[in-house]
Computed example of a mutant assay.
Amino acid sequence: MEIIIRRLSQRLSPSPFINLCKTPIIRSHHKPILNYYNNLYQLITIIRPFSSSTARTPSRWLSGFGTRKKITNLPRIVQAGDPVLHQPARDVSVEEIGSDRVQKIIDDMVQVMRRRPGVGLAAPQIGIPLKIIVLEDIKEYIAQAPEEENIAQDRRPFDLLVILNPKLKKKSNKSAFFFEGCLSVDGYRALVERYLEVEVNGLDRDGKPIKVDACGWQARILQHECDHLDGTLYVDKMVKRTFRTVENVDLPLVNGCPKQGVR
């Protein structure tokens, strides 16, 4: 966010309008004008930068309504290139699970995911190399996507899941290609092949065993989040020629790319 302090006078510009998006170049040899101009700096305007995630109504992946909410006093979502996203996370020990630290990490993850909003988050995405994932998909998010898209993706709502030390295995060899994105690779999408049915075993936030049998879009989210715990981003698995900005996600695929849908 940039702060531009400016006030233009009629002497400097014949236009009554103030350009708040571009700072004029003042040559150093025009000292009288420079001094006069500096004395006119009285207007403070805060300009919110354009964000690709608000340019359309994203409903295809970890984007919820597509309107970012201000996150105060919460961890930031780290972006691709940060080492924590590219190395394996470690297990949470049984002794750690009930600790205030781990419970706060879980609470922070849930709040960050919901406020973004998104439908899944892994601890490395807030800079913590622990094997913790949270995920949730609600009716309000799903309603933002066309009904035919939700049907094709087998996307249905599910309640909040908190899984520590998840272990994922496929339940069948059936797979599908759909566009995927990531809060840590902001503003981009690409086709990724995922299994249609998976099973995840782990511990809940109280340290009790939990097992999730998932299919369709929930299975995709689980695979995406578990990849984070291995230091893998979706761009490591994407069909490279389908990589694009979120604004271009609906443009035709180039020749040779797999079509979206179940294989």
Rank of each mutant, 00 (worst) to 15 (best):
E148A: 11
Q125S: 12
D137Q: 07
V110D: 14
P124T: 11
D107P: 00
A123C: 10
A123G: 06
Q144I: 13
Y141G: 02
P129H: 12
M113T: 06
A152M: 07
P124A: 11
V119E: 00
L130R: 06
A143C: 02
Q153G: 01
I138A: 15
P117M: 05
A143H: 03
Q125E: 14
L135W: 01
L135Y: 06
Q153I: 01
V134E: 00
A143Y: 05
I151K: 15
A152S: 07
E136W: 02
L130S: 05
V134L: 05
R101I: 08
I142Y: 11
I132N: 00
Q153A: 12
M109R: 01
I132G: 04
R116K: 04
Q111C: 04
P146D: 14
R101E: 13
V119T: 07
D107M: 00
P117R: 00
I106K: 02
G118T: 08
I106L: 10
Q125W: 11
I132P: 00
I105C: 06
A143N: 10
I106W: 09
P129Y: 10
V112N: 02
P117F: 01
G120W: 02
E148T: 06
I138Q: 13
A122S: 14
N150C: 13
V110T: 04
I138P: 00
R115Q: 06
I126A: 07
R116S: 10
P124G: 11
L121C: 04
G118M: 05
Q125C: 04
I106Q: 08
E149P: 00
G120I: 03
M113D: 12
P146F: 11
G127K: 13
I105T: 12
Q144K: 15
A145Q: 03
M113V: 12
Q111E: 06
K139N: 10
E140R: 11
M113K: 05
R114W: 04
Q153T: 01
M113C: 13
N150D: 05
K131V: 13
Y141L: 04
K139I: 08
I105E: 12
A123T: 11
K131Y: 03
R115Y: 08
Q144Y: 11
G127D: 12
R115M: 09
A152Y: 00
K139A: 15
K131P: 03
L135H: 10
P146C: 09
V102F: 08
R114H: 15
D107S: 08
P129L: 07
E136F: 07
L121S: 06
P146M: 09
I133V: 15
Q144P: 02
L130N: 10
V110E: 15
D108H: 06
A145V: 04
I128G: 05
I126Y: 13
V112M: 04
Q125R: 04
M109I: 09
K139Q: 15
I142N: 09
R114C: 03
K131M: 11
I126N: 08
I138M: 13
Q153L: 14
